[in-house]
């Protein structure tokens, strides 16, 4: 029954093991129902209710995108680069990281978890997560609770604060109004985002049925909207110092690169499956030397070197 989603028998067996681990082998009715759901292409993460992401266990619910390993990979890469840059210890200023289209909250929560020890009495880490979907807002709140106990415990032990806000990111006035609420109008040090990046024409052709049928289209289908928003609003209005965006196709990255101001340095990284996966950029005129972070980020991930290298785009 599990073979519908799994191409080989070992994979199916492995999945059955995980299902048994969750539901127990003696409760056959529940187990059977779970297998039946799997047969109908329900993602395993929705059936089991969670997906490991870095050190965290991220809860998954229908209506919110399941964290992908590609995201996990670059996210841990980025936190590792931040740790190695030693920028946080040296400058005695607060840091602000914002994540757009946060979904399950996997990116900002991993950011907190990995870097929380760097922040001492003098420096504070502000992490903001924005999403348009109310289900995603609820789930990211739940994920925060399950992974960090509660807000009080986190802010007591570490100099970190976390904030989740429902916001339409593409609506410029709404964003500016939201940012205006902040008393300290601090610039955002790092903006991360995993926007919906599957173009409409690819959706039927290239997307797995399990994704197509059960994961939210809101978090999947999109093309240049968010990248345009990045260039026009976040970079254009000088709200951020640096960014990391996940990408689906190289055109999206090139679009961003071509529209960046000349003071910005950018690069494209590959995932371990050799697909173009991330675009990053930083303002070289910023107060902090972000090259310390992103040079390492570049080294750890394979960098998309030559645009002429056509097999990457395939």
């Amino acid at each position: 029954m599990l073979m519908a989603e799994n191409r080989t028998i070992p994979h199916a067996r492995q999945e059955l093991r995980w299902l048994i681990q969750k539901f127990g082998s003696n409760n056959s009715a529940t187990l059977f129902r779970a297998c039946l759901e799997r047969n109908r292409h329900v993602p395993l993460q929705y059936i089991l209710g969670s997906q490991p992401f870095g050190m965290l266990d991220i809860k998954c619910k229908e209506g919110v995108l399941i964290p992908r390993w590609e995201t996990e990979e670059w996210c841990l890469n980025l936190t590792d680069s931040i740790k190695r840059s030693k920028l946080i210890n040296s400058g005695a200023s607060n840091w602000k990281i914002m994540d757009l289209c946060t979904g399950s909250g996997c990116i900002p929560l991993t950011m907190i978890n990995e870097t929380k020890n760097l922040f001492s009495n003098q420096t504070r880490l502000y992490v903001d997560a924005l999403d348009y979907s109310p289900i995603a807002i609820d789930l990211s709140k739940l994920n925060f609770k399950t992974n960090f106990d509660n807000k009080v415990a986190l802010s007591q032990n570490f100099n970190v604060s976390f904030n989740i806000q429902k916001c339409n990111i593409l609506n410029e006035p709404e964003i500016i109004q939201y940012l205006g609420k902040y008393k300290e109008k601090r610039k955002i040090n790092i903006l991360t985002c995993n926007p919906p990046y599957i173009p409409h024409h690819e959706f039927i052709k290239d997307v797995r049925s399990s994704v197509r049928m059960y994961e939210p289209k809101l978090a999947l289908i999109g093309n240049l909207e968010f990248y345009k928003n990045l260039n026009d609003l976040w970079v254009g209005k000088n709200l951020i110092d640096s960014f990391v965006y996940e990408i689906g196709t190289l055109e999206q990255a090139l679009y961003v690169q071509n529209n960046l101001p000349s003071s910005w340095i950018s690069g494209i990284t590959l995932d371990s499956n050799n697909k173009a996966r991330c675009i990053f950029g930083y303002n070289k005129e910023a107060n902090i030397d972000y090259s310390k972070i992103f040079n390492h980020f570049k080294q750890t991930a394979k960098v998309y070197a030559s645009i002429a290298n056509s097999d990457v785009t395939k």
Binding site: H11, L65, I66, R68, E70, I198, R208, N273
Partner: peptide, 18 residues
């Protein structure tokens, strides 16, 4: 080495292979 399915990757698939 990680076992990676071919294809687009990213949001296009949700693999359980780890």
């Amino acid at each position: 080495d990680f076992k990676r399915a071919s294809g687009k990757g990213g949001q296009h698939v949700n693999t359980t292979d780890s």
